[in-house]
């Protein structure tokens, strides 16, 4: 129980003892390090997957996929920043890959929305549970 309370107390009191676990957490949160960005990216990814799985509107599913891609982008940028701080010479790689991902997302948007429009023209619906032509 004390292990659960210690980080909260450390956050509240702004304790800065690196020896205790609460102090380590506080320092980890304070410094521009990796972990908190990874947690945010994981949360965005989970929300995107939940959107893909639960929504029926194909446009919203499409936007959830964009959210998943953005979670990956945030990971890339965070690792790029980390390697940059660690003195890694090729730290720009993550940002270059982010540019590629954005390009792929743009191409996916063009194709996906073209498919949505063709689908609506033929089936008069964009709800995925109504689009069951290949299912029996």
């Amino acid at each position: 129980m004390s292990q659960l309370i210690t980080p909260v107390l450390a956050l509240l009191l702004q304790a800065e003892q690196p020896t205790t676990r609460g102090g380590v957490i506080w320092q980890g949160i304070q410094h521009p390090d990796l972990s908190k960005f990874l947690v945010i990216a994981a949360l965005l990814f989970i929300i995107g997957v939940a959107g893909v799985l639960t929504r029926r509107n194909i446009i919203v599913i499409f936007m959830s996929i964009e959210l998943i891609l953005n979670a990956a982008n945030l990971n890339f940028i965070a690792f790029s920043r980390y390697l940059q701080d660690a003195g890694y010479p090729n730290a720009v790689a993550g940002q270059v890959f982010t540019v590629f991902i954005i390009v792929v997302a743009a191409a996916e948007a063009a194709i996906g929305l073209g498919i949505v429009i063709a689908l609506y023209r033929n089936r008069e619906t964009i709800f995925v549970d109504k689009i069951d032509l290949l299912k029996w």
Binding site: L67, N70, S80, R81, Q95, V99
Partner: peptide
């Protein structure tokens, strides 16, 4: 979401992205 992520990229020293 995109605007907030752009702000996060700025804090991560990636202004171009």
């Amino acid at each position: 979401v995109f605007g907030a992520l752009a702000g996060l990229y700025l804090t991560l020293a990636a202004p171009f992205i």
